[in-house]
Simulated scan of single mutants.
Amino acid sequence: MDAQQVPGHGAPTVRYVSGGSQNEIFEVERDGVRMALRKPPQTAVAARDDGIRREWRILSALSDTDVPHARAVAMCDDPAVLGRPFYLMEFVDGWSPMGHPDGLAEPFHSDVAARAGLATGLVDGAALLGRVDWRSAGLTDFGRPEGFHDRQVDRWLTFWERTGGRDAIAGMAVATAWLRTHRPIDFVPGIMHGDYQFANVMFRHGAPGTLAALVDWEMGTIGDPKLDLAWALRDWPAAGPPRSAGYISLVGMPERDALLARYSEVSGRQVDDFDYYLVLARWKLGIVLEQGYQNAGDDPLLQSFGRTVEDLMLAAADLAESTDFRHRVEAGSGA
């Protein structure tokens, strides 16, 4: 820490915060300075080391931007120090929707009217992230934006096959065929979180709802930021008030059209092709969750993914068949 000129002096105190098979998070305090340490557990696969390095690249690139995030402090790539590569970042004083009743801390759990700012903050975070000049931020080698949409179907079908996905899921063939023959109206590459939703942001304590930080960057890449928007809003109905996103109540939050207009205003991007992204988001999430279902064992949560996958595929197919979005490409065309 001294060699890296980490703030504070002397030996730190360390408190375990949370962890799983992919990452562990610790609170590190040194001379009154609070930081968070993120690293893979000792049992994680070797690829998680590269994931930690990728997360650090993104956090570093976001410095001096208006994207709410935990400020990057220091990176250690030497596994001799703690057994795996790790990094230190600013400790964010806020709350996460995970672990609260209906996903809402007070006063938002009790005050329905106060929840509008949470949804607006979520959308603003996606818009601000997509607005970052990723080339100037040093991320020109961070992803492959060229042909991004042309790769999606084959890439995720390969993932499905590799994880032993079921042979027939109602709606999957319809959604897959639709995605092969449709593209968005335009494609403006940008930084993409990759799993953007309420579970992966933090808010400041107290009202009004103010976004404190986007967190958990292991899926980050250079891609299409509007897919983050669809990922975040996939549980909103096309019209009428939203109700629930499973782990968080959406009651009291703005309707989808208002949030799409907000995103367009902040990001400077058009959202007339949102249906395309919503079909892709539902279809892709279904494929991702199928992996959990195939590995469920006796875990009731992972077992429930089986029905969720079926619901997502049907929702993707229903939207594909009913939308009036008609920006088509020839089947099999490449970048």
Rank of each mutant, 00 (worst) to 15 (best):
F148C: 03
A116S: 15
R131C: 10
E146T: 13
G130K: 04
G117E: 10
G147N: 06
F108H: 03
L118H: 13
R144K: 13
P107E: 07
H149C: 00
S96W: 00
W95H: 06
R151F: 01
P85F: 14
F142E: 11
L118A: 06
G117W: 00
E106T: 05
A119K: 13
D133M: 05
E90K: 10
L129A: 11
D150H: 08
L104T: 06
W134M: 01
L118S: 12
F148W: 14
F86K: 01
H149S: 02
F108Q: 11
G138F: 14
E146C: 10
T140M: 07
D141R: 06
L104H: 00
R115G: 10
G125A: 12
R144I: 09
E106F: 04
P145V: 10
G121M: 00
L118F: 08
G143W: 01
R144V: 13
G143N: 00
G94T: 02
T140K: 09
P85W: 12
A119P: 09
L118Q: 10
A113I: 02
E90L: 02
M98W: 01
R144N: 12
L128K: 15
D150I: 02
S136M: 12
S110T: 14
R151M: 09
P101D: 05
V132R: 01
W95F: 04
S136H: 08
L129E: 12
L104W: 07
L128Y: 03
A137N: 09
L128N: 03
D93G: 03
R131A: 15
D124A: 13
D141L: 14
D124S: 01
L122E: 12
D93Q: 04
P145E: 00
E106I: 08
G130W: 01
P145M: 09
A116D: 06
F108P: 14
V123K: 11
G125L: 12
G117A: 14
P85Y: 13
E146V: 12
L122I: 02
T140D: 15
P145I: 13
P145N: 07
T140F: 08
G130Y: 03
H100A: 08
L129S: 05
L129K: 00
P145G: 06
P145Q: 07
A137F: 06
A119E: 07
G143D: 11
D102P: 00
A116L: 04
T120E: 14
L129P: 05
E106W: 11
H100M: 13
H109M: 05
D124E: 10
L129G: 03
P97L: 06
P107K: 04
G121C: 10
R151V: 02
T120C: 05
G103A: 11
V92A: 10
E106H: 01
M89L: 11
G117R: 03
D150Y: 00
D133P: 11
S110E: 14
P101N: 07
W95Y: 08
S136Y: 03
L128Q: 07
L104V: 13
H149D: 04
T120Q: 15
A127F: 00
V123F: 04
G138D: 12
G143C: 02
G99I: 14
